[in-house]
């Protein structure tokens, strides 16, 4: 059984610098890491591999330096890595990204399971995984919170939808998007780190993806474009700020609660 895990290299969002004046992000200001949700996708694939002997391939699209994120995936249990990298892929929106990744998956072929993170922390559209499923013409399930079981033919998971939790069973091949609750990702071990260092990373270019032309990818293949970027004015309220003894402060809050009729519940 072949499993593909989709991963993305993202800036460390807790340290990345942002220029409020110009509205630009200084990506060089922060370290790069694997999108946190992808760690859970990878962990799920590796758990399935341990139970079934499946082969796990990590796939990413990005600049040549995104090779690092594939090595990290291998150090955390993936068997190999494939990088989709070509200057034609630049400027892709969700649609172009999904079509390119779907073509990469078709290139690999004979895949039972494709797993990705629910969303990325930088782009944060949460749309790429379901769109890949659409372009592959496969069913998908999203918001996955638990892996229940896997057989040779299908996989059973739990998902949070409609303000409830549902157990779903999906026949292979299927595409899944997982949340952070699904598992706790493992750390890399010394031996897998060594393996990752030596691993051959395969790079695919547009010409390798026979189903696509330059019209289908990158900015040309995108269906949306950014017209402008606005830096929002910080929301602020004309509030009052008090520095008082706790008793007076609490009393002030009581006054507000009375005004807002929020005490009625309690007083009957």
């Amino acid at each position: 059984m072949n499993i593909i895990v989709l991963v993305k290299q993202v800036p460390d969002m807790d340290t990345v610098k942002f220029d409020q004046e110009s509205g630009t992000v200084d990506r060089s200001s922060a370290g790069k890491e694997m999108n946190p949700f992808d760690l859970n996708a990878l962990e799920m694939a590796v758990e399935i591999k341990e139970n079934t002997g499946a082969k796990v391939t990590a796939v990413t699209m990005g600049p040549p330096s995104a090779e690092e994120v594939l090595r990290e995936a291998i150090s955390r249990g993936a068997d190999e890595g494939i990088l989709l990298s070509d200057r034609f892929f630049g400027g892709s929106d969700v649609k172009a990204t999904a079509r390119t990744l779907a073509a990469g998956i078709n290139y690999i072929g004979d895949v039972a399971l494709i797993i990705g993170g629910l969303q990325t922390v930088d782009g944060d559209t949460g749309q790429v995984i379901p769109e890949i499923a659409g372009y592959l013409n496969l069913p998908h399930a999203s918001s996955i919170t638990k892996l229940v079981g896997v057989s040779e033919k299908d996989i059973t998971i739990e998902t949070d939808l409609w303000d409830s939790t549902y157990v779903k069973k999906a026949k292979f091949p299927v595409v899944l998007a997982v949340t952070k609750e699904v598992n706790s990702p493992r750390m890399a071990s010394f031996s897998t780190k060594m393996k990752a260092k030596k691993a051959e990373i395969t790079t695919l270019k547009l010409e390798d993806l026979k189903e696509l032309t330059a019209e289908d990818v990158g900015f040309k293949g995108s269906s949306t474009f950014v017209k402008k970027i606005v830096v929002p004015k910080a929301t602020s309220r004309q509030g009052i700020k008090l520095k008082e003894e706790p008793q007076i402060a609490a009393n002030k809050i009581m006054g507000i609660l009375k005004d807002k009729k929020l005490l009625e519940v309690q007083n009957g």
């Binding site: 910080a234 929301t235 309220r237 509030g239």
Partner: peptide, 10 residues
């Protein structure tokens, strides 16, 4: 405090 209607410093 910038988005609060009532801010209590304490």
């Amino acid at each position: 405090f910038n988005v609060a209607d009532l801010g209590i410093v304490g």
